[in-house]
Design a protein around this nucleic acid. Sequence first.
DNA 1: GCTTTTGAGTTGAAAGTTCAACCAATCGTG
DNA 2: CACGATTGGTTGAACTTTCAACTCAAAAGC
Lengths: 163, 163
Amino acid sequence: MSTDEPRWLDDDEQEAWLALVSTGTRLPAALDRQLQRDAGISHFEYQVLAWLSMSPERTLRMSALANFVDGSLSRLSHTAKRLEKEGWIRRTPDPANGRYTLAVLTDQGWDKVAAAAPGHVAEVRRLVFDPLTKAQQKQLRQIGRRISNAIGPDNACPATTND
Amino acid sequence: MSTDEPRWLDDDEQEAWLALVSTGTRLPAALDRQLQRDAGISHFEYQVLAWLSMSPERTLRMSALANFVDGSLSRLSHTAKRLEKEGWIRRTPDPANGRYTLAVLTDQGWDKVAAAAPGHVAEVRRLVFDPLTKAQQKQLRQIGRRISNAIGPDNACPATTND
DNA sequence: GCTTTTGAGTTGAAAGTTCAACCAATCGTG
DNA sequence: CACGATTGGTTGAACTTTCAACTCAAAAGC
């Protein structure tokens, strides 16, 4: 953008960066593969079902759900249509305020997440936690929080002030 | 998969996991936004151009390039068609072995990356390195390497054995 | 109280990605 | 040296995601 030389990445930064980009594309891909293979759903769809399953009444407003899964409302709407067609969720206008839409996990939806969860958790463990020491897991938590803060708000995890 | 209870994530793991997923989806999105806004290309396209620009003769075989950018050959082929249409790359059959295809960065392609790079590097710095201490940057490098190893081969960064 | 504005959500078309089928060149093997 | 198997790459169709336009309900102005 500006005309003066930017501060390029040094070798260490470069290596960290390449590793991060590579992991950032390959980890989601790996999770998608596992879920697609064992449950026939994408990681995004899984997250939608999972967040609903953890919510009171198994219910969330579409916009809240979109925030949790870090997706656009439009993307969520299309996905919700597919999930609804499968019978895993239902959508109803919020009786308390007609311009909100509530997404509700159905019983079949619950069964679906319940069936998919163990395999998914095992994969997360295998790829992320098992290869790390306890100390590294803690470091990862702190690092993730800092980068997430830098990216900005819209965060699923409520802001924790301590780093 | 198996019928016995899986080992669920404890609270600390859960938090680390949510942070990682959130960062893993929002960081690429943020990079895409910056590049799209300032250069009119996606992060994936940028990576293609960048890897070519760093390669001898500004040339790489399609399959090698696909590995570097962690994408399928098909995806790369479609992308290459678009980049070629813009005049940023050329494709020719490898004279040495007719079943390989060489992707070559053109002069305009070089100019394109050169123009996009400073803004992109600045964004990477802002989002990833500036918020971290030197120690955390080192930790991130090690953690990334371990997770990357767990995911498996096909890695852009040549395998480094020390953790 | 009627109109304008704002915000949540949906929709359809365009762009991008994946999937499976395909082509073409090389390698192996008899 | 011929023929099937393999490998690198492309293509088109199906699917997903994005983008911009639109709908509808609640709030805000006046």
